[in-house]
């Protein structure tokens, strides 16, 4: 494709971000330690939550959003929930250490490794995960879509935003 607008705008932050993710992936996946997996998930969600607090632009994404996205593994060993809601008038993300039962959607990974690779993937591919039987979900798929968007949006709002072309 001749359309290279975005490529040319890829900047150093993006590269660092991707590297960082890869690093984290490698370390965690290599170690296959359930406890750490748990931490990783929690950590990721907490980071996200923090970003909502700190970054008004990012927070805009979840204005008026009420919903819960739960994560767990088939064996039930790992789990967490991202719960979107409001604190006073501010949209916030609360992180719980277990997968709650009344989530809008629950994503179940085949194992900790699958979970780790999913949450550290720069652009998570749900379909591949489903096809490979790495992940499964119950509940409303659109909540996953929204969640993935929020994850994908992080590098964009971290001041390393690669602007989309405005064609008008």
């Amino acid at each position: 494709m001749s359309y290279t607008y975005k490529k040319s705008k890829i900047n150093i932050f993006r590269i660092i971000w991707d590297r960082m993710l890869r690093k984290v992936r490698e370390t965690f996946i290599a170690q296959m330690d359930s406890n750490k997996m748990d931490k990783l998930l929690e950590l990721g969600l907490k980071a996200m939550s923090l970003l909502f607090l700190l970054c008004p632009e990012y927070r805009e994404n979840i204005k008026g959003f009420k919903g819960k996205v739960a994560f767990n593994t088939v064996d039930g060993q790992l789990g967490a929930t991202a719960s979107f809601g409001r604190f006073l008038h501010l949209p916030v993300l609360r992180v719980r250490k277990t997968a709650v039962s009344n989530a809008n959607v629950t994503i179940t990974f085949s194992d900790g490794q699958a979970m780790a690779s999913f949450i550290t993937e720069p652009s998570p591919d749900i379909i591949s995960g489903i096809l490979d039987n790495k992940l499964n979900f119950t509940g409303n798929m659109n909540y996953i879509l929204r969640f993935v968007f929020l994850a994908m949006d992080i590098p964009e709002v971290l001041g390393i935003r690669t602007r989309l072309p405005d064609i008008r």
Binding site: Y5, L145, P165
Partner: peptide
Amino acid sequence: ITIWPELHTISTRTDNPQILSEKDADILNK
């Protein structure tokens, strides 16, 4: 709605990109 995760990338993906302005992406998302 399935393009939600791709709002940032749909314009520039390698296979058959479909151009979406930033403004429209924002309207879709919000």
